[in-house]
Amino acid sequence: MPPLTLVFEQLLNGVQFGVMLFLMAAGLTLVFGIMNFVNLAHGSFYMIGAYLTLAAVQWSGNYIAGVVLGLAGTLLVGMLVEVVALRTLYARDHLDHVLATFGLILFFNELVAIIWGRTLLDFPRPEWLRGHVEIFAGSRYPFYRAVVILVGLAVGAGLWYVVTRTRLGMLIRAGASNRTMIAALGVNVRLLYTVVFGFGCALAGLAGLMAGPIYAVLPGMGEMILIQVFVVIVIGGLGSIRGAFVGALLVGIVDTLGRAFLRPLLATMISPTAADSAGPALASMLIYLLMALVLAVRPEGLFPSRGR
């Protein structure tokens, strides 16, 4: 494989990872931007999306039907959680949010373990999503991952359209900047919040169901990606969809390239044995270093949302 092809393919890998992070980050940052709510349990909806879709695919025997049912299910679970548990917490400080949703993580992980067991489950992908695409000579890129990239970009574009061009988006933006005002104008803010929360959960569910066939479906799968998602939204600027998008791609690419090239790069500078031990350690810390760096320069992230 020529070096340029390798770098290009690794970039593509980074973009694909970034897109998954974006789907997670979008919902989280939306909820934060509008309700000023910190949801640690966002990863649980990623997990719920994967499990519900898997169950629905097995029940209906149809992948597309399963995806639709799974997304609808995640949306409903999200709205239910918002109404039952989280709604009362909006007025509280972030500390209470962190703790209550920490409790939700424990609950959902264990609940999933009770229902589906702790065994890792296989999430088969339909025949038409298998195989490879040759983006250019010599590269064999998995078709499924290419589809993930496209879906992610499409969702990003769709989100941009909804938030900037529709009435719902207008309400969302208005709700973010002045809650009392839009409530006075007769908008049902409670309902708006519930819908937005459920919608954010469904986005996480989408990331989860797309992750299912690549990764494993298991209780606690959400927490494996959650911390990286937080890094994304902090880099991007809390509450900013645009920031989440840029931050996600940045983190995805930096993490992937770091894993691929940092050790060989270090080996040209220090002894190979030293590079062997320093490389992997540094690669795992890279995104946190990136975050510290961004915050040192821009304490509110790359795209601070206005009014906050």
Partner: peptide
């Protein structure tokens, strides 16, 4: 062994 399913909601309730 499923103690977390009980502890979790208790955390939420105690916060609320």
């Amino acid at each position: 062994e499923h103690w977390q399913v009980i502890l979790g909601p208790l955390l939420v309730l105690s916060v609320i």
